[in-house]
Design a binder for these strands. Structure first.
Lengths: 352, 352
DNA sequence: CTGAAAGCGCTTACAG
DNA sequence: CTGAAAGCGCTTACAG
């Protein structure tokens, strides 16, 4: 036996009729701060309850010109760091009744065509991470007054705000740390050659090493596990393989550890030290014990939301740039220098 | 210098004026299959282009009563399996121009209050994974004709479709596999005591073991890394610790391996075999080499979408239940029986 | 405090 | 093929 065609959902008018008031009264009853007599409000709420009324948010946003949804453009969800970003962003947004509309973009550094239509959804803001926005999109957003912020990506495009970790400092500190640990040959596995944030880590690392009198061998892993493995393979298989490796993300560092262990049979950290970037939860697991420079996803997201709210309040403002503090978390994947270690309980950090 | 207040986005009327046609003509020009003269359509497209017009999807969905967005309620995003589900779902949906509205729910098995408002968004469908829907929500959906499907969860609630892996078969096969491997004491780490899908794996496992004459020690890890570690600790620290462990998810198996290695110094698989469920990409990494029963996220998602499309076409249909095939992938985390192994290149599976 | 009315930006019969 | 008009379900001045 077939069910009849689905009933259409109850509307304000339906509630109004049942409660014996006008449709606008119903609207007011659901608008915080609107003027309704307590008695009528009760009557209305009761009627609404009875009908199972739920406001139609599409209609509301058409009328108010704001949707309470923010677009999140993201790729590399397989990297736990980005999974964390999604989770944190979603959680914080829900505190203010907002939700994420997800644009999972292709994993390369290309601008995603699907993203170009994002403004059609009347989103209140756009956050990008592990992807890029086109100049055109940035312009449209500016015109439409929609704030757009990138997390963990640099952007030369004006009008785009950015939140990032301490990329330069990470590179420099890791260099000092590895030198202090007595290493002699250094490798770096970056994201892509032109990825801004990877590049800054690389420059900090290589320049600092140079000041110590060392060269840096460089390879790129495209932020994927497979390509990072390829990069590690080429570095470790070279004529003069590094005895210390700094990777632009923990996820790529995991790949490097895999290759070092499985294919080269190297003992970590005796024969090879590996340092990552991000401090994802997995870095602390026994499988990796990864020494890494932290980039707390929660703090990044919190900053991003602050920026969004700021720009929404004052649409005229220029793009913001924020940096979130990180530190070098010392675990077992890299040789530990004699000095500079700080302890707090089980947690060890290093500073120069 | 402050920018002026943001211009409002161009509408069909704006385009119409510029193109010298009526607003409804513009609408038709953007509606596939609507009747417009080729000449006028060109004129309109040109005008739209010039203004940077993008249709307002909120207005459209108000008029058409469909939004092209599907709600995804999910928790445990830190588990790579669920991250994969998000990615797959997003990718498939985009092929038909749909997007995900994300509801990241709290990690416990509670019904999420935020989810109760999901129908306000006029979503075309709801998919749930690693969370539950309330009976009330299911009822509302049925009334509103919104299909609702759960991935990798059982549900006693009528009207909710489900897509799952071969839970029972996994349990039984793993039992046979471990017995064939010569193990004598067996442990199971489940999600929660009442999680349907974990329970079915457990029952298949324990009942099969019983038929072989073995008992099963059971503990629960709540699908989190930390709690799974606690569960592993209690099992491995018991008076007669298991020499084989089956975990209801790879992610919990990783935790068990961590504890076994770091806290008990056990050699895997010589002193302890560990088998997981899901076959997430990490399972193949050198850090784990996890033997596991596969539950392909891509296939699950594909089925879920088929169901959604089916139910959308024929709203009267009753809830669907689908099962997606998996197999026992043999790697290094469990002792390998003499017989039953099948090879295909580097890939090894086991069957009875 | 309350209702009637206009408007948000679309789609879709309905005439012509 | 095209335009005028009603309607989708809300919000929000505006009178009263």
């Amino acid at each position: 036996m077939r069910k009849g065609s689905p009933h259409r959902a109850p509307t304000e008018s339906d509630v109004a009729k049942l409660a014996g008031v006008s449709q606008s009264a119903v609207s007011r009853a659901f608008t915080p701060g609107a003027s309704v007599a307590e008695a009528t409000r009760e009557k209305i709420l009761k009627a609404a309850q009875e009908l199972g009324y739920q406001p139609n948010l599409m209609a509301r946003s058409l009328a108010t010109r704001q949707s309470n949804i923010v677009a999140l453009a993201i790729s590399h969800l397989e990297n736990p760091f980005y999974a964390q970003v999604v989770r944190e962003l979603s959680d914080r947004l829900r505190e203010t009744g907002r939700h994420i509309l997800l644009f999972s973009t292709p994993p390369d550094e290309q601008v995603d065509p699907a993203l170009e239509g994002v403004l059609s959804y009347q989103v209140d803001a756009i956050v990008l991470t592990a992807t890029m926005a086109s100049l055109e999109l940035a312009l449209q957003c500016q015109k439409a007054g929609v704030p757009i912020v990138q997390i963990n990506r640099e952007s030369k495009i004006p009008g785009i705000s950015t939140v990032r970790g301490q990329n330069r400092r990470a590179g420099e500190l890791v260099a000092d740390f590895l030198v202090a640990g007595g290493h002699k040959r250094f490798g770096f596995i970056g994201g892509t050659e032109h990825s801004g944030t990877s590049r800054i880590r690389q420059d900090g690392f290589a320049e600092k090493l140079k000041s110590h009198g060392f060269e840096t061998q460089i390879a790129y892993g495209d932020y994927t596990f497979e390509d990072a493995a390829v990069a590690a393979r080429s570095l470790l298989g070279s004529a003069s393989p590094p005895d210390a490796l700094f990777c632009a993300s923990d996820y790529m560092a995991f790949a490097a550890l895999d290759v070092a262990k499985r294919e080269f049979g190297l003992k970590v950290p005796d024969q090879l030290s590996v340092v990552g970037f991000d401090d994802v939860p997995e870095a602390a697991h026994a499988a990796y014990e990864l020494t890494t420079f932290s980039q707390p996803a929660g703090a990044l997201v919190a900053e991003a939301i602050k920026i969004i709210d700021l720009m929404t309040e004052e649409p005229g403002r220029r793009a913001q740039r924020r940096e979130v503090r990180g530190e070098l978390i010392v675990r077992g994947s890299a040789r530990i220098p004699e000095t500079g270690i700080k302890k707090a309980g089980l947690r060890r950090t290093w500073d120069n």
